[in-house]
Design a binder for these strands. Structure first.
Lengths: 250, 250
DNA sequence: CGTAGCTTTGATGTAGGTCAAGAAATGTGG
DNA sequence: CCACATTTCTTGACCTACATCAAAGCTACG
C-alpha cells in the first residue's frame, strides 16, 4: 500500500475523523498517524484493559467498541470517570506516569491500537501538527471530565442524566456514530449509575421520568432524543466546551 | 544577573520546587523557566482573573496567594473545580482552546506570572525536559480533578471533606507551605461548600463532627490534622496518585 | 431451556438541603 | 482606636432527594 492509500484508509478511522473535524492534517501527518494505528489488539468484555496500580502500561486508541475508566473505592463501590467511544485516547496519562491510577474496562468487545511511548514521542517529533492535535484532543477530554464533575457536584439526578446523554450524543456525532435523533448505547443502567454517582434503582426512575415527560427514551440499547431542545434547556447543556475552534497550530 | 544567579533565585519559587521534587532540571532549564516567570501581575480579591467564554486568555503560574477555578450554572449555583496554590499552572487549557471554559477567582491577593503561548512553545522547543516536566505536572493536576470527581460521586460528605483536606495538605507540603501537622487555609466554608458540592450549612456540621472526633480542626484560617492516620483511614485517602515517580524524560 | 444479568416497581430510611436567626469575626471609614 | 457594616460561622427545626431493601418480570445467551 502506498502512502496515499494509507492516508485514505486511516481517514475513515474514528480517531482521524475526530481530529479532522477541527484540524487540517496533511497526507504525511495521516501516514504517521496510521503507523500509530498498526498494533491492533482485541479485548473481550469482562477483562480489564488497564489496571489501577499496575506499571508499564501502554496507551490505546479505541478503534471500535466502548470502554470506561473507573476508580475503585475501599468500601467496594466504584466511580466511572469517563466513557470511551471510538476515536478516544485511553490511558494517555499512564504514558507519563509510569503507573496507571485507574482501571479501564471494555463495555463491549473492543478493538484498540496499542500506542507505545516511544512511538508516540517519535511521531510527535516528526509532526508537531499531529502532536498539537492530540494534545488538543486530550484537553477536550479533560474539559469533559470537568463537566462531569459539575454534573456530580451541582446538578440534580435528572439534569445530570439528561446532560450526560446529550454530551455522549454530541461526542458520538463527531465520529459519525449518531445524530440529533439519537444513538446506539450499550450502557447498562448499573454502569450509568456508577457514572452518574447514583444508585441503579434511581437511574431507572429518572429514565422513566425523562421518558414520560417526552424528553429522552433510553431503552433496548438505544437513546432517542424525543425533544432535543427541551432536553438542552432543562439540563443546562452548553455545547461551548465541545465546539471549540481547533487548536492554535504551531 | 548571570545565568547561575537566575537559576538560584528561580529555584526557590514554588513552581520550580514542585517540578524539582520529581525531575532533575539543569541550570539552563531553570534559566529558561525563569524567563517564563518574568511578566509578574497582581490580582485583588473580588475580580476574576480569567472569565468563562472570554477569548485570547493567557495562562499563569501562581507565584503567591490562592485562587480557584469554577463553573457557573444556569440556576445561579456554582461548582469549584480546583483550588490553585502557589506553583500551580492556571488556565493551561485556554492556551490550546482559544476561549476559556471556566472562571478563575483569586481567594487571596495573588501574584502570578503571565505565560504567553508563544513563550511557552519557544521554551518547550528549547528544553524538552522542561516541556515534559510541565506536561507531567499538568497530568498530575488532572489526576487530582479525577480524584475530586470520585469525591463528589461516591464519597459521603464527611469522607469527602476529609479527603479533600488531606489532598490539599499533600499539595501544600510539596511547595513548602505546610507539614504533616497542618497548614494555613484561607478558604471560607462557603467556598469549601462550592468545592465539595455541599451546602455551607452542612460543611459546617461536617467540620464540627470531624473536630469533635479528634480528626481535623479547621478554624481561624488554619487546618490542623489532629489524627493524621485515622483521617487517612476513614477517608480512603491513597497518596499513590500524588506520589508518582517523576515523568519518563525524553 | 435454564441461569445469570438486566430492568422495573413498591416500601421505607437517611444524608444532606433549606430556612431562619443569632453570634463571631473581619473589615472600613472616621 | 472605635462604631458600624459585612461577611463568616454556628446551631436548631424541618423537609426532600436519593439510597437501600426486597421481589418480580425480562432478555439473552450458552
Amino acid at each position: 500500500m502506498n502512502e496515499t492509500n494509507v492516508a485514505l484508509s486511516i481517514q475513515d478511522s474514528p480517531f482521524a475523523r475526530k481530529l479532522l473535524a477541527f484540524v487540517r492534517l496533511s497526507d504525511a501527518d495521516l501516514a504517521i498517524m496510521s503507523d500509530l494505528y498498526r498494533r491492533r489488539r482485541r479485548f473481550a468484555v469482562g477483562v480489564d484493559m488497564i489496571h489501577q496500580g499496575q506499571t508499564d502500561q501502554c496507551a490505546y486508541v479505541l478503534a471500535s467498541g466502548w470502554a470506561c475508566s473507573y476508580k475503585l473505592l475501599p468500601g467496594g463501590g466504584r466511580q466511572i470517570v469517563d466513557i470511551q467511544i471510538p476515536g478516544d485516547f485511553l490511558g494517555l496519562r499512564s504514558i507519563l506516569f509510569r503507573t496507571s491510577d485507574h482501571n479501564v474496562e471494555p463495555i463491549t468487545p473492543v478493538q484498540a491500537s496499542e500506542v507505545r511511548q516511544r512511538d508516540l514521542i517519535a511521531a510527535f517529533s516528526q509532526t508537531p501538527r499531529l502532536a498539537t492535535a492530540v494534545l488538543w484532543a486530550a484537553s477536550r477530554d479533560e474539559a469533559m471530565v470537568v463537566e462531569h464533575l459539575v454534573d456530580l457536584g451541582r446538578r440534580t439526578a435528572t439534569e445530570r442524566t439528561a446532560h450526560f446523554l446529550l454530551e455522549l450524543g454530541a461526542r458520538l456525532r463527531l465520529v459519525g456514530l449518531g445524530d440529533r435523533k439519537g444513538f446506539l448505547c450499550p450502557l447498562s443502567q448499573y454502569r450509568l449509575a456508577d457514572t452518574l454517582g447514583l444508585s441503579a434503582v434511581h437511574v431507572n426512575r429518572v429514565l422513566r421520568e425523562l421518558r414520560e415527560e417526552g424528553l429522552v427514551t433510553f431503552q433496548k440499547g438505544r437513546v432517542v432524543f424525543d425533544d432535543f431542545d427541551a432536553l438542552v434547556e432543562m439540563s443546562g447543556f452548553d455545547r461551548a466546551y465541545l465546539d471549540h475552534e481547533g487548536p492554535l497550530l504551531i
